[in-house]
């Protein structure tokens, strides 16, 4: 199979380049990650992140033929050759397929992603109805792979000020949690032309999410809560 890989080693390369690679591999039943690791076994200078290899840890997000995907759950047979693999767009490249995720993590931290409940803790669990719990479905499953945020043009233009779809989805996860008492503060934190309203609802994030989540819908719900609070 034919691959075109983004290569860049800051110690030796003046600038990034695309490398053509032929790999002898039977694609049936294999994922893109299998192929990348097979290439690395031949040429160990190729660097990429990987861990769980089953789509739950979020390490191996890359841009494949123009789309952000997790290499470990992208079936090899469905990709058009030459398979072009690049690092996630919009983040600084450290080497080859590895980007500096800090701008992404920083936005995640900025939404204060932890449950706030200052009421005295009962000695047992806080109760939550199945209906209230169902509000978290589609929000808590995020694996922080950054596929969505780095497919969002608004994040490309304003990575330091726009929270991005992943961060906003996590903000919604806590706003939606019946046990969280900080909704007002969370809405205050987000109500900003840059932090929230850079989102124009173009839904690139929805298309990119490898877990099938819908950040745009969550952002819409945050906006309607803000409107409700105002009128």
């Amino acid at each position: 199979m034919k691959f075109r890989l983004h290569r860049y080693n800051p110690e030796t390369d003046a600038k990034p380049f695309m490398q053509d690679v032929e790999l002898d591999i039977d694609p049936a039943g294999k994922m893109l990650l299998d192929a990348l690791l097979a290439i690395k076994a031949q040429d160990e200078t190729l660097s990429l992140r990987r861990s769980c290899r089953e789509g739950v840890c979020g390490s191996d997000a890359v841009n494949v033929n123009g789309k952000n995907r997790l290499a470990c759950i992208t079936p090899l047979p469905e990709l058009k050759e030459p398979i072009e693999v690049r690092p996630l767009p919009g983040l600084p490249v450290i080497r080859d397929l590895i980007v500096d995720m800090e701008p992404f993590y920083k936005q995640y931290r900025s939404i204060k992603p932890w449950l706030v409940n200052d009421a005295p803790e009962p000695e047992v669990e806080r109760l939550q109805s199945p209906a209230d719990r169902a509000l978290l479905d589609g929000a808590y499953e995020c694996i922080l792979c950054a596929c969505c945020t780095t497919s969002c043009p608004s994040f490309w233009w304003n990575p330091d000020t726009f929270v991005g779809p992943a961060g906003l989805l996590q903000a919604y996860r806590f706003i939606a949690d019946s046990r969280d008492e900080a909704t007002a503060a969370r809405l205050d934190n987000l109500e900003d032309p840059y932090r929230l309203y850079r989102c124009r609802g173009i839904m690139s994030c929805v298309e990119a999410c490898p877990k099938g989540l819908n950040p745009t819908a969550a952002i819409g719900r945050i906006k309607s809560l803000l409107v409700k609070r105002r009128v």
């Binding site: 929230l196 309203y197 803000l226």
Partner: peptide
Amino acid sequence: TTGSHTGTG
């Protein structure tokens, strides 16, 4: 990194 409390309008 906090909101300016504007934008909704």
